[in-house]
């Protein structure tokens, strides 16, 4: 009888815990780097060295890391990141896909709306939003760190 009560208690506990876990919205952790690119010669920020191969095909001569952000976004929620030059980047975690992928909507208001699908450690580079006064353009590597 005691064993039967223990079994009943375990089943009841699982019945409470499992739906709560199932209902918990997945979260996407996204790394966002903000890089200022200029056609004017200048010092190259060593912190952007890991992106140099991605910038190599563009006609810019100097690169500077403005900021790095690590954000966590709930599914179907959005987070806004300030870029530079008045630009903002809205990141919406629209859908958790199979195999740990995440579907993200990236929006730079007045410039660009795009939806991408990233797997863990996958990156997409948004480039080109111009900075005021001819101070070059922005390059924004967006990397999916994980989906939980």
């Amino acid at each position: 009888m005691t064993q039967l009560l223990r079994l009943f208690a375990a089943v009841s506990l699982l019945a409470v815990i499992l739906p709560a876990q199932a209902l918990a919205a997945p979260k996407a952790t996204v790394a966002i780097d903000i890089v200022q690119a200029s056609k004017e010669p200048g010092e190259n920020d060593p912190r952007v060295a890991k992106f140099r191969s991605q910038f190599a095909d563009f006609n810019y001569k100097s690169f500077k890391l403005v900021a790095s952000r690590l954000i966590t976004v709930d599914e179907k929620k959005a987070t806004t990141v300030d870029l530079a030059g008045g630009h903002k980047l809205n990141v919406t975690f629209t859908k958790a896909e199979p195999n740990g992928r995440a579907r993200l909507k990236l929006s730079v208001p007045g410039v660009l709306d795009t939806t991408v699908s990233l797997k863990r450690d996958g990156s997409v580079l948004v480039g080109g939003p111009a900075l005021p006064s001819g101070n070059g353009v922005l390059f924004i590597p967006v990397t999916l760190v994980e989906v939980k």
């Binding site: 660009l112 795009t114 991408v116 450690d121």
Partner: peptide, 14 residues
């Protein structure tokens, strides 16, 4: 397969 662009739309004269 690490990154796929599903849609792109620009605003204004971009």
């Amino acid at each position: 397969p690490s990154a796929s662009v599903l849609s792109v739309e620009t605003a204004g004269d971009y």
